[in-house]
Amino acid sequence: MRALAIVIFAAVSCFSTVNMFIFMIGPESNFTDISAVESSYSSLRSYLPEKGVIGYEQAGGEIDTREYYIAQYALCPLVLDVNECHKYAIKSDRGEISVIKYTGVK
């Protein structure tokens, strides 16, 4: 009985591991690669100052947190501020990303 319990335990656990593998390679795994978004932000690096704080805006005013985090990840050591106006800002408008330079702002 106990030996059987050991074999059943091993077999069912192994089955679980296979299930995990199927889940991870399957379409329902729901993970997204950020490489494309990250590199589109990184490509703006040469238009921005080397250091300091710049603004971050999104069309419509609402900030998509995930995209903002990816932008910060792509552009550090620059610091992206969503709250205040800065001389330079990144603007994201439904996938279109641009650099804005405000005049009259220090």
Binding site: S13, C14, T17, V18, M20, F21, M24, I25, S29, F31, T32, D33, I34, S35, E38, Y73
Partner: peptide, 18 residues
């Protein structure tokens, strides 16, 4: 189980390199 787990890791990790 060990090989399948390693394959699971490699598969998912290659999908999300960052």
């Amino acid at each position: 189980a060990l090989v399948i787990s390693a394959a699971s890791f490699l598969s998912l990790s290659s999908d999300i390199p960052h």
